[in-house]
Design a binder for these strands. Sequence first.
DNA 1: ACATCAATGTAGCAGTCGCTACAAGAGCCA
DNA 2: TGGCTCTTGTAGCGACTGCTACATTGATGT
Lengths: 174, 174
Amino acid sequence: MAPENRRAQILDKLADHVLAHGLSASSLRPLAKAAATSDRMLLYYFADKGELISAVLQHIAGRMVTLMEAAATPEPLPYDALLARLFAALSDPGFAPYMRVFLEVASGAANGDAALAQIGETIGRGFLDWGKAQLQSDTPDADAARLLVTLEGTVFLRAIGMGDVCQTALGPTG
Amino acid sequence: MAPENRRAQILDKLADHVLAHGLSASSLRPLAKAAATSDRMLLYYFADKGELISAVLQHIAGRMVTLMEAAATPEPLPYDALLARLFAALSDPGFAPYMRVFLEVASGAANGDAALAQIGETIGRGFLDWGKAQLQSDTPDADAARLLVTLEGTVFLRAIGMGDVCQTALGPTG
DNA sequence: ACATCAATGTAGCAGTCGCTACAAGAGCCA
DNA sequence: TGGCTCTTGTAGCGACTGCTACATTGATGT
C-alpha cells in the first residue's frame, strides 16, 4: 500500500483509540495495538510521539467538524435557541468523547504543552467561527463568545459530575 | 516531631509542588524532593499514591477556600457585578495555579478517575454554594449555576489561549 | 542497661515509557 | 543475477513508574 494511504489508515484507528481511552492512555504500545501494528512502525510513519499526537488530534478535529456540519441548522438561530440546541447536542453520547479529549488538551495546554495549546486554540477558534455563522444576532461576536464560554463551562462541569448544575443554569435562559 | 505535624508539613510542600508543576509532573520522586524527603517516606506517611494525591488536593482546596474568603464581598452583589468581580479575581496570577490544577482534576475525572471526580465535585459544589451566598438575586440557584458555568468556561478557554474571547463574552454583559 | 518500636536510609523489583540499532524480507532497476 | 531501497520484525537501551524488603538509627519505657 502507498505509504500515505497506510499512514491515513493508521491515523484513523489511532483516533478511535484516543477518543475511546483518552490521551493519558495513549502511549505508543497501546496505540500500536489499536492500529494493529507495532510501536516501531508508528515511529516509522511519524517522526516522534509529538508529531503523532498532533496528527491524531488534527484528524479528530476533522471528524468533529464533520459532526458539527451535520448538526448545523439551515438557518441562523437566536442566541437562546442555539444555546439550547448545542447544549443538547453536547449531551449526545456520540459527542462526549470529543469533549473529553478537548478537555484533556486544554489541561495539557495549561500545563505548558505548546503543541497541545496550539491545537486546542485552533479547535476553539473553529468552534467560535462556526457558532457565529449559526447565530442570528445584532452582536454576533459577543454572542458567539458568550455561547462558547457557556458551552465549555458545561463541558467542564459535566466532567466533575455536575451536569445537574448545567441544566439549572441553562433552564431559565434557554 | 509528632507524626501528624510532620505529615501536615510535608503536605504543605507537596501542595506547593502540585500547584507549581501540575499533577502530571507529580510522581513520587519529584514530590519527595520538593518536600525534602524520600519517596520511601511519602509512602510511610501515606498509604499509597492515591491517598497522597487525595490528601494534597484536599489541602489545596482548603487553601483555595481561604483565598476565596479573602475575596468575598461584605454584601451580596447582583449577578453582573459579581461575575465581573470574580472574573477579575480569576485573572489574578495567584489564582491561576488553582485553576490549572482544577482543570487537570476535571480532565482526570472525565477519563474515569473516580477519586479525582469525587474531589472535583466537592470543590465545584463548594464554589457553587459560595457564589450563591455572594449573590443578590431573586433566583439564586439559577444565577449561581449560570455564574459557575460561565466562570469555568473562562478557565477552559484561557487554558487554550482564548482569554480574549472571555473578555469579549463578559464585556457587554458585565 | 536492655528491650522495644517508630522513623528513616539503601537498594532494588517488575513494569512502562519513548526511542533506536540491527537485520531480514520484498519489490525494483541494471 | 546482483545490488538497492522501502518496509517491517526483533531486541533492547536507559530512564522513569509505584512500591517494597531489609537494615539501621534513635528515642523511650522499664
